[in-house]
Amino acid sequence: MDRPASTVWDANLYLKFADARTRPALDLMARLDPANGSRSGHAIYDLGCGAGNISRILAERFPQARVIGIDSSEQMLDKARAQTASERLSFAKGDLAHFRPEIPPLILYSNAAYQWLPGHIDMFPHLMKLLPSGGQLAIQMPRNHEAPSHALMRKAAEAGPWRDKLAGIGGIARVEDPARYYDVLKPLSSELEVWETIYQQVLTGKDPVAQYTASTGLRPFLEALDETERGAFYDTYARMTAEAYPTRPDGITLFPFRRLFIVARRT
């Protein structure tokens, strides 16, 4: 079985499902104002940029703008730098919970990152206040924590000898109802959109849902175990997800995935 082999964030495993992860990023990007990429002395930030795939697309969409990718993973940043040649695009290590831009931002963009931070909703007003009038905050977060893919993580954690080790492990932080984000951001916004989309993701291969989550929501559980336990735990979770998301006769596994989008313009 193709199991995760390391507790280190696996950039290659994450990128295995790049197409499914890129579509919501592009849907979010489509709501950005092109005028916000042309003001000199400012930058577009990709917060939680990972391996830089989306940062590079931002640089293409905004050909006059400086784009700066921020991430906490050195492995991801090394991969991003190795694949980037543009002088307008750079990457830096940073803490999203205490983000302080070196260059004034016109757009703060984040695709599937803030769901890792407990209490992220309280960080968003700070991000808005970093923007000038007319600047945009654009955030996408998975909101799939009540789906079988995520509920089964805890069930698998309780189903084996690793139970005590995993008792205190939490996965992705709860993403709140859309109205909560609307209420928090509305006082700082001249325009505000909050919406959800459920993507019917088409996956193939062995244990596709387990493979998909292994580099994201399942990762904290895997990191808490030694190599032998990790393999057995992963196998248990993979069997559970295979039952919850059966492979169709054509070899396709449909994986419904809910995502929350926020686009706010600074008053």
Rank of each mutant, 00 (worst) to 15 (best):
L131D: 03
P132F: 00
P132E: 06
G134W: 04
G135E: 05
Q136R: 01
A138N: 06
A138S: 08
A138Q: 08
I139D: 03
N144A: 02
E146C: 08
E146F: 07
S149V: 02
L152K: 04
A156M: 00
A157W: 03
E158W: 00
A159V: 00
P161H: 11
D164H: 09
K165L: 13
K165N: 05
G168P: 00
G168T: 08
I169P: 10
G170L: 12
I172P: 15
A173M: 10
A173F: 06
A173G: 14
R174N: 12
E176M: 06
D177R: 03
R180E: 12
D183Q: 10
D183S: 11
D183K: 07
K186E: 12
E191L: 07
L192E: 01
V194A: 10
E196G: 09
T197M: 07
I198W: 01
I198C: 14
I198Y: 07
I198T: 15
Q200G: 14
T204P: 08
G205Y: 15
K206E: 14
K206C: 12
P208Y: 13
Q211G: 15
Y212Q: 07
A214G: 09
A214Q: 07
S215K: 02
T216P: 02
L218R: 11
R219N: 02
L222M: 05
D226R: 13
T228Y: 03
E229S: 14
E229W: 09
R230M: 13
G231D: 12
A232Y: 13
D235W: 05
D235V: 03
Y237D: 03
Y237N: 04
R239F: 08
R239Y: 04
M240P: 11
A242V: 01
Y245W: 02
Y245I: 02
P246I: 05
P246N: 06
P246W: 02
T247Y: 02
P249W: 02
I252E: 13
I252S: 06
T253V: 11
F257N: 01
R258H: 02
R258Q: 06
L260W: 02
L260G: 10
L260Y: 01
F261Y: 15
F261K: 10
